[in-house]
């Protein structure tokens, strides 16, 4: 595993641990955890893929494809 992947995982773990401490202390409801892990999980997966040299289809490309499909953009 290369150092960039490790650095990414370390940054996300630090952020998650920092926030978990606050969530547990404030007894946040489950939906906060669900939304939080959805956003952090998506960010972590995409950044690991990018670091590994795999670029998933970008949202801007999907948006462009939609506008091309409906004939607005060329």
């Amino acid at each position: 595993m290369n150092s960039i992947l490790l650095a990414i995982i370390a940054v996300f773990i630090i952020l998650i641990l920092y926030d978990m401490r606050i969530f547990i202390r404030n007894k946040e409801p489950a939906k906060v955890y669900v939304l939080y892990f959805f956003l952090m999980g998506a960010g972590l997966i995409v950044s690991l893929l990018l670091a590994a040299g795999i670029r998933p289809v970008a949202p801007s490309r999907l948006i462009e494809a939609v506008f091309k499909m409906i004939g607005i953009a060329k």
Partner: peptide, 19 residues
Amino acid sequence: NLTRAVGAFCVVLSVWDFE
């Protein structure tokens, strides 16, 4: 509660979106 998660996602999206 969600600002750090949204901020992190924005950073990843900014790198991911364009080559």
